[in-house]
């Protein structure tokens, strides 16, 4: 009988119970794959991030004290792995890439419910993946992880102004693409 409590599950994993780790993986891997997909350029990179993230989880599961949720802890581990991967591969590139997108003026604003209702999950995920790595990282950290700009700047090794600029450029690109998709659908 596998423990349902996250703390007991983590303790079982820390004791080297492979069945408990199997259960932990299959419980949280589908959610974590979405997280990895947001930080990755494509699906393969997302799988690599997921694999590396769960190996890190396996190595550091003994540090989980049960103060928060196990899912949040695993998510932080996955995000740290994604940050490390970004700093390893993409930190030197595209931080100052100018926004070339052109915005169109439209009198009719879109709401969040409309967007999610009309645009599929995969399309929205693909929009994020098509951002440049710097924009994607800042957007993910600010929107999904709830970090402030000074924290993002510290994590990515950039200035706070660069973080704000990258976030603004990422939003503009996403708005352009969403607008295009919404008009195409309508």
């Amino acid at each position: 009988m596998f423990p349902d409590n996250d703390k007991q599950l983590a303790m079982s994993c820390a004791e080297g119970d492979s069945a408990a780790f199997d259960r932990l993986y299959h419980r949280y891997a589908p959610k974590m794959l979405v997280v990895c997909s947001r930080y990755a350029r494509d699906r393969d990179e997302a799988h690599d991030l997921l694999q590396e993230g769960f190996i890190r989880v396996f190595e550091q599961i003994h540090t989980f004290k049960g103060a928060g949720s196990l899912e949040g802890w695993i998510r932080r581990v996955i995000v740290s792995v994604a940050l490390a991967n970004y700093q390893r591969h993409h930190a030197e590139r595209s931080q100052t890439k100018s926004l070339s997108a052109e915005f169109t003026d439209d009198d009719q604003p879109f709401r969040a419910e409309e967007i999610t209702a009309q645009i599929a999950f995969d399309d929205m995920l693909r929009m994020i993946q098509q951002l440049t790595p710097a924009y994607r990282m800042v957007f993910n950290l600010y929107v999904f992880e709830g970090m402030k700009h000074h924290e993002i700047a510290e994590q990515l090794g950039i200035s706070e102004g660069t973080s704000k600029s990258n976030l603004a450029q990422a939003r503009r690109i996403l708005q352009e693409r969403i607008t295009k998709v919404m008009f195409d659908l309508s």
Partner: peptide
Amino acid sequence: TNNFDDNELDEA
């Protein structure tokens, strides 16, 4: 932009 609120985009 004219069409989006930033918070709406983030929330979406």
